[in-house]
Each structure stands twice: as C-alpha cells, then as structure tokens.
Design a protein around this nucleic acid. Structure first.
Length: 876
RNA sequence: GCCGGCGUGGCGGAAUGGCAGACGCGAUGGACUCAAAAUCCAUUAUCCGCAAGGGUGUGUGGGUUCGAGUCCCACCGCCGGCACCA
C-alpha cells in the first residue's frame, strides 16, 4: 500500500519545473562574448567556475550541489549587481572511472558517458542552477579533444630555455638533440605500473604505494612512456603561489609536493679507482662528519664499485630491493638494511677513506641517488651507523662554547643524534661558525676547489603522461623507424578507433594496439574534416607511400589532460579555428572564483597551472595563472557523522531530497549547514527546518482559499513600510549582500529568517518589504522567489532585476542600548542618545540601578566608555 | 615523527578584543482540532532562588588587557595532509 500523497505546504513541485523551463527557454543565464550581439562592454566581468563533474553512473551526490549552489548564488547575485557573469558547466568524461563503469556494464564508454551526461544534466537542471548551457563542454567530444591534442603539440614543439626560464618554440633551441629538451618527451625511466588497472600512473596518482583510483598495489617498472617536463616550471609554480588567493593549506600542499631543497652537490673521489660519486646534501656544513656513503641500490655506479668479495651479497640485496613494492619500501618504522660494496671513497675535505654502502633508504629518484652519511647529525644515518657499527663523528655543537678548541681528531662518539643547527666543531676551517655561515663557507670552498657547488633540487618529478587504456585522448604522434614525430595541427583531431574490445590487455601493451588498421598511419585518411590545403590527391598518395611504415602512438592521455584547460574552452566553446578566441580569452581570464574539493590539490590544480604557464609563455593566453581565487568546499558527511559510502548505507541522494522538499530547500539547506569550507554532517531534520522557513516565506504572501487554491494574501498591501519593518529589511539587505561577498551563506540565511519572522508577526505586510526580501533570497531559492515575484505583480524575471539597495540611515538608531559592566561583568543596561557625550554616559552608567550595589563602598578607578558598544566601570 | 586545521548548549552552528550561545534542529508546555498532522505562541547553557537577582561557563593550565571564545605561551584531544626527500 502506498501512503497518500502528503499535502505540500507550498507547491514547489509545480513551480520549480515551470521556472526551470522558463530560464532554459529564454537562455536567462547566457552571456555574450565581446563582439557578439548583446554584449555589454560597460559592465565589469565575473568568471565563476565549478570543478566540472565526472559523469559517473552513480549520478550526483549531495557533495556536488554544495559547491555548485555556492557558485550559483554568487553568479546570480553578481549578474543582478551589474556584472557580465560567466558561469559554465561541462563534463570531464575521459579516464579510468568512466572506462571501468563501461566495462562493468558491458557497454561502450561512448554510450555510457552519453547516458550519464544526460542524467547529470537533468539532475543539475532540477536544482535550478543558472548555467550558460550554450558553453557546455565535454572532454570526449572530438571538437574538444582536438584542442587537447593541439596543446600537447604545443608542448611537444616547445622547450624551456634555461637562459630565459620560459617555454619557447623548439626552433630557438641551438643544441643537437631537441628530443632531450622538449616539454613533452619520451622516457624509459622506471614508472608506476599498476597491474590491476593495467596502466601506468603519475606520482600524484599513487598514494602510499597504491593507486588513488581503487587502491590497487603499484610496482615500479621500466617502460617507454610520454612525460611532460613540469619540473622545468617548479620554481615558478612555487613563486606564483604568492600571487593567488588560495587557501593556505592548498598552497602549502603544492609547495611541499614540489619540495624545493637548497643545498650543495659534493663530489667524492672513489678510492683506489677512477671516478667520482656526487651526492646532494642540505647540510654541507657537516661534511667533516661524513663517515660513510650510501648509494641507492639502483645507482648505476654500484656495478662498477662492487668488489669481488661483496658481489654476491650486493646482488642478493639488489634483487630483494627490486622485488619490493613501493609500499614495502616506504613502510613505517622499518629497520634499516644495507650492504657494503667493498669500496671506499675519499672525503674531499679531510682525505679520509670512508666505506661505500648500498641501502634502500636512499631513493634512486631524489637528489643524485647517493648520500654522504653523517650519523651524528641525521636520524636515518644515525640509526644505520648504530646497526652496522659505523663510526659516528660529531661536527656540530648545539652551544658555541662546547666545541671551541676542538681539534680535527675524532672525539668520543656522541650519545645521541643532534639534527638541529648549532656551531661547527672538529671541522677544520669551519670551527666555531654557526651552521648557516658554515654552510656558506664550505660551499664557497668546494666551489673554489671544483669539489662541489650550490644546488637547488625539487621533489617534483616530471609528469608521466601516457596510459595503457582505451578511453582517453590519442596522442597526435607517429612512430617511424623507432623515432617519434608530431602530426601537423591540421590533422587533428586524432579520433580513437571504435573498438569492440576496449578492455586493458593486462600487459603494458595498450588496447589501441589491437586496432591494426587504425595504427597504420595514412595521411589521406587521417584528416577527415580539415585536410591541410597543400594536400592534393596526388601528393597525399605520395605521402602515404613515404610514410607507409609510420604507426600511431597507441598510448592515450591521462584523465587530467582534458581538465587542464577546460576553463579556457568555456570562454569560446564553439570556436572551430582556435582553442579559445584571443579577444574572448583576454576579456574573461582570470577565473575570479573557483570552487571545488581539496582532493585535486596536487593533481588537477597543479597540472592546470603548469599547462597554463606553458601556454602563457608561448603567447597563447594572456595571464600567467588561471585561477585567481580558490575556495574548497568542505566534505558533507552522512547523518552518522561518517563519510558517506554505499557500504555504510548513509548516502543521501539529492533526487530524493528534491522530490520531498524541493530544489530550493536542497540548495538552502546545503548552504545553511555551516561554513562552506567546513566538513559537516547531513541532517534530514535540518532540511525540514529550511523547508519550513521557505513555507513561511510562501505564506507571507500567499494564503489558501476554501477551494484549496493559493492566492495572494489579504494581509499583503501596497502601503508604506513602517519604520520597524523597514529597519529589519534594510539590515537584511546589508547583511545578505556582505555575506554573499564573504561566502558566508549560512549567516545570510539566518538573517533572512529573522526578516521573515519579523514580517510574519505583522498583521499587515507591506508588499515592498516582501519584494525586497524576495530580492535577496532569490539567489538562494530562485524558484520560490521567482514565483512569488510574479504573483506579486512582477512583469520581468526577478533573475534579471537589479539587486536591492537599502537606506543606511535606517540602520542608525537615535538611541542606543549600552551594556554596563562592573569589573568586566555585565550588571545592567542603559539607554542613551546616539551621540551622547562620554560624561553623560558615565553618569547614566553609575546611576543604573543594578550597577549601584556593585560599586557601593568601592573606589571608582576608571570608567571605560566604548561609544556605541559598552561601558566598563573599574571599581576596587 | 613533521606540517596544517579545529575544540562553544542535547545537535548543526553564531559572535570587527566589547551583552557568549544569533539562526536552525531537537525537547517541553500551550492554542487550534473529536483526534492527529500541519500551523501559531511561549520556554529551553548550567547551578541556587517563588521572584528580583546571584554563582559558574567557550578542551586544560598560565599570561597580556579595563575587558579574552577571540591575542600570546604550554599542554590535552580530534580531524586532515605528508612521511626514509639526504
């Protein structure tokens, strides 16, 4: 049995779809570009951007509408405040999750994505978001990824000139191996291979040795892969964070990820042989304390150095290391392991012979893959030295006096490891110098003697940019005789073959390699729509002959490729001749406000900055950074305070909320829960609270007649607003306007509740006051306010009406109530004229009935009068 | 271990160094109703008190200040991130 339909306190189910249709039909939120009809150059621009969703099969969850409602409120308010507002939406639809969903459902990703996009779009439209749908983008449209491929070509055909620190066309490179400097290049270095996902992954996609998607183990493996030279931009990516209005936590995260370290390279001569080992250290001042060296097991010199006696032990250890996953290798609190190579090096500053070890606590990918070990002043080296009985030599003293006069002779071994800064001891010419000076001095000396130099290194690695999956952008690259070359821009887009079996092969061989016909490149067939002008029939044939052995790159781009530049495509989404029109780009960039989750801190948000900088250097965009202001919405937890998940059964589906309470209630509740950036739990009774508020607003203006029809209430009259109501309304306009600017939507709503409560209490309700309240409530509850606006006689859409103004004079009281404290404790309140002199206020305060008992028999030492705030009497 | 962030009623939360607990939820009482739902009104930090009023109170302990939830120091707890980065 189904329960009878419960009567709705206001007919949101009727008017919400109605207004959504009106906004759609009239393209209310479409905004024109410069040069287009309807463009108003007199208005300032505002570009407000959401992180576009991944159209997964699960549909929207309540986390999406949180950020989306915030930007929608800003966008709607700014539009009414006289801005040209760009507020677009689109679909990030390439990549692993889409492909996995397709595999699960047994349908082609193209089909599932189309269905999911339609589903998502319907859901977003039912929430009433004011997007400019004419600018909708989908990263899997050929008309979109054509330009993703084009940008890849720009990177391929560019290098970062060390002289200028800028990306430049590869033509300006004067060396003899351009392939060694391109921003997009091929590398055979070890990569993160995830057997379960059947693809390699970027460092940013690997967390604790497992894949970010799915949490599968990741191993290291040498494979030929495409890389993007993001490291060339490391310093600028750090420096320019200073110009951005981003949360400190995200800036810090990016800074730590890039991981700049200042120090020195030091060259150690190998004893009894030729060759040097270069180490990186941030503490060159401890060089005299280096008592052994450690190479990463993978270090290429290990084979050269190892002595016959140690060869077996070394080989065994190296094999063991190779078998370890990243997970095992970085495991917590693990005991140090290592093996001596049998070889020695010479400490360049004191000539000491120090043994060379290998150990897996030295990582091949950081610094030079080799360290000088200073056990007295480094925790790891300390631990290692203790375990293997290696000498420990103290060369830094925490206090300046302790070590003074210390000779170069090694003293007794210290009792504990000291990693802090102090004063050099047992360090020859450095003795007595504070750490900072000792660093500078030893570096100067090393440089003078050609034994080393000052160096800055970064943790950031180049971006592993290829994947062995089907559902991604193909590379605009051909292979010929073992060499790669770029396709011409005129041959884009490179459309992937329509594979029946698009599953990963489970081997490093990408699925696209199964498409034999597609792989074989023939220029005439490649460029369907936009064949280059010079390609005539005969020439095409000739070329086909020339390149008969050319094959296409069969890897695809990672899911981050499309999202690296989508904010640019929105600006000019239909442009068939350029990735974004220059004039439009100049007008709309930068993004004024970008709202999204923190999960992309060192993924999308770093990658997009990198691409943008490259495009900026090459003259394709006009600003060095894409996103001026970034705000992270907080996570919404389930009603039980736990993260929402299917297994916990605490997932809230926005569709259900809309069905029962309406879109306006969903929007307002998500904003009323608490500060936007905070993590907060869902509460269904909280939704009901907001729903009741919206019903009260409805009943301010409407009443139900005998027939059960809603008509404008008789209490609503076109009269002049009484002063007390006018005051509340003015205060509400002020607070809501300011709170929207500050993204403090929860307090804006509470002020509107206060305003509504004040109007509910009035027997006669001035129509003008209600209209003003509707005006400021509109961005939050657009359907309800639009409906009431019309019922109260509005002809045009409220969405296009100017933002309400208020008379500041109304907010200035003639008389003010001041709390009176005695020794900081509240005792009474007095009412005084707004601009009463201090003496008068003091007298009134002292005379207040509840003040007297607390001052009697005491000496008044001081009276603090804070005008308009309070009075504090200090009595002892 | 390191780096962030946060600790306020039964709950979500509010508070430019100036009346702690706005607003909402929940709860209690009342009105309306045959009754219920819905709605409206009132109360709602805590202790003493019939009341007026008073004591206590923003994780703990100190400090600065006429005045501290807010600023400073130390500690405790929770959440998030990073983690052998030389």
């Amino acid at each position: 049995m189904s329960t009878p339909e419960r009567r709705k306190p206001f007919p949101f189910d009727q008017f919400e779809p109605k207004w959504q249709r009106v906004w759609d039909d009239r393209a209310t939120f479409h905004v024109a570009n410069p040069g287009e009809p309807g463009f108003d150059a007199s208005r300032p621009k505002f570009y407000v951007l959401d992180m576009f969703p991944y159209p997964s099969g699960a549909g929207l969850h309540v986390g999406h509408p949180e950020g989306y409602t915030a930007t929608d409120i800003i966008g709607r308010a700014k539009k009414r405040q006289g801005f040209n507002v760009l507020h677009p939406m689109g679909w990030d639809a390439f990549g692993l999750p889409a492909e996995q969903y397709a595999i699960k459902t047994g349908q082609h990703p193209r089909v599932t994505i189309a269905a999911n996009v339609a589903h998502f779009k319907g859901q977003l439209q039912r929430i009433g978001f004011g997007y400019d749908w004419q600018r909708e983008v989908n990263t899997t449209d050929p008309g979109y990824y054509r330009w993703t491929q084009w940008i890849f070509l720009q990177l391929y055909n560019a290098w970062c000139n060390p002289a200028t620190g800028r990306a430049e066309p590869i033509e300006t490179y004067r060396g003899d191996d351009p392939d060694s400097v391109r921003l997009a290049y091929v590398s055979g270095a070890p990569v993160n291979w995830c057997p379960e996902l059947g693809t390699v992954l970027a460092n940013e996609e690997v967390i604790d040795g497992r894949s970010e998607v799915g949490g599968h183990p990741v191993e290291r493996r040498s494979m030929r892969q495409w890389m993007l030279r993001i490291t060339a931009f490391a310093q600028r990516l750090i420096d320019d964070l200073g110009t951005l209005d981003w949360p400190d936590s995200i800036k810090l995260h990016q800074r730590n990820w890039i991981g700049r370290s200042e120090g020195a390279e030091v060259h150690f001569q190998v004893a009894d042989a030729t060759g040097t080992i270069t180490v990186f250290t941030t503490r060159p001042d401890t060089l005299y304390g280096a008592t052994y060296m450690v190479l990463a097991p993978e270090h290429r010199l290990v084979d050269v150095l190892v002595t016959e006696e140690q060869a077996t032990a070394i080989e065994t250890y190296r094999e063991k290391t190779a078998r370890k996953s990243d997970l095992d290798r970085t495991e917590l609190a693990k005991e140090k392991t290592g093996v001596w190579t049998g070889a020695f090096a010479i400490n360049p500053v004191n000539g000491q012979r120090i043994p060379i070890w290998i150990a897996d606590y030295v990582l091949p990918g950081y610094g030079t893959g080799a360290i000088m070990a200073v056990p007295a002043h480094d925790e790891r080296d300390w631990e290692f030295a203790r375990k293997f009985g290696l000498p420990i030599r103290e060369v830094v003293s925490p206090t300046p006096t302790l070590g003074l006069g210390g000779s170069g002779v090694c003293e007794a071994e210290p009792l504990e490891c000291f990693v802090g800064e102090g004063y050099a001891i047992h360090s020859g010419p450095l003795d007595g110098l504070p750490t900072a000076e000792a660093k500078a001095e030893i570096t100067r000396r090393l440089e003078a003697d050609g034994l080393g130099r000052k160096t800055i290194i970064y943790k950031l690695r180049d971006w592993l940019f290829s994947r062995q999956r089907y559902w991604g952008e193909p590379f605009p690259i051909l292979w010929e005789n073992g060499k790669h070359r770029a396709l011409d821009a005129s041959e884009l887009p490179v459309v992937p073959p329509d594979l029946e079996d698009f599953k990963p092969t489970g081997t490093p061989e990408p699925p696209l390699s199964k498409a034999k016909d597609w792989l074989r490149y023939s220029p005439s067939a490649s460029s369907s729509s936009s064949a280059s002008p010079r390609t005539k029939e005969g020439e095409a044939e000739a070329e086909a002959d020339t390149h008969s052995n050319a094959t296409r790159e069969s890897n695809t781009m990672p899911q981050w490729a499309g999202s690296c530049w989508y904010y640019l495509r929105y600006i000019d989404s239909q442009n068939a001749g350029r990735f974004v029109g220059a004039e439009a780009e100049k007008y709309w960039m930068n993004v004024d406000l970008y709202v999204g989750g923190t999960e992309h801190a060192v993924l999308h948000l770093l990658y997009a900055r990198f691409w943008h900088k490259a495009l900026f250097d090459l003259g394709h965009v006009s600003t060095p950074e894409p996103f001026q202001r970034l705000v992270n919405q907080g996570l919404i937890l389930g009603e039980d305070g736990q993260k929402m998940s299917k297994s916990r059964g605490n997932v809230v589906n926005p569709d259900d909320v809309i069905l029962e309470y309406g879109a306006d209630a969903l929007r307002c509740y998500e904003m009323f829960m608490g500060p936007l950036e905070q993590t907060k739990p869902w509460s269904m009774t909280g939704v009901e609270g907001i729903y009741r508020f919206l019903a009260r607003v409805w009943r301010l203006a409407m009443e139900e007649n005998q027939a059960g029809e809603w008509t404008v209430s008789a209490a609503v009259q076109e009269i002049e607003t009484p002063r007390d109501i006018a005051k509340v309304v003015a205060a509400t306009v002020k607070k809501v306007t300011e709170d929207i600017e500050a993204l403090a939507f929860n307090t804006a709503l509470s002020q509107m509740m206060i305003c509504c409560n004040a109007l509910t209490g009035a027997t006669v309700r001035p129509a003008a006051a209600i209209r003003t309240l509707l005006g400021v409530l509109n961005p939050f509850a657009p359907h309800l306010t639009e409906e009431l606006w019309e019922r109260l006689g509005g002809n045009a859409l409220l969405a296009g009406e100017p933002w309400p103004a208020y008379d500041p004079a109304l907010l200035i009281e003639d008389e003010v109530e001041l709390p009176v404290q005695v020794n900081g404790k509240l005792r009474d309140k007095i009412v005084v004229k707004k601009d009463a002199p201090a003496a008068e206020i003091e007298a009134a305060a002292l005379a207040a009935p509840n003040v007297k008992p607390h001052t009697d028999g005491k000496t008044i030492k001081k009276i603090v009068v804070v005008p308009g705030r309070l009075v504090n009497i200090v009595a002892v």
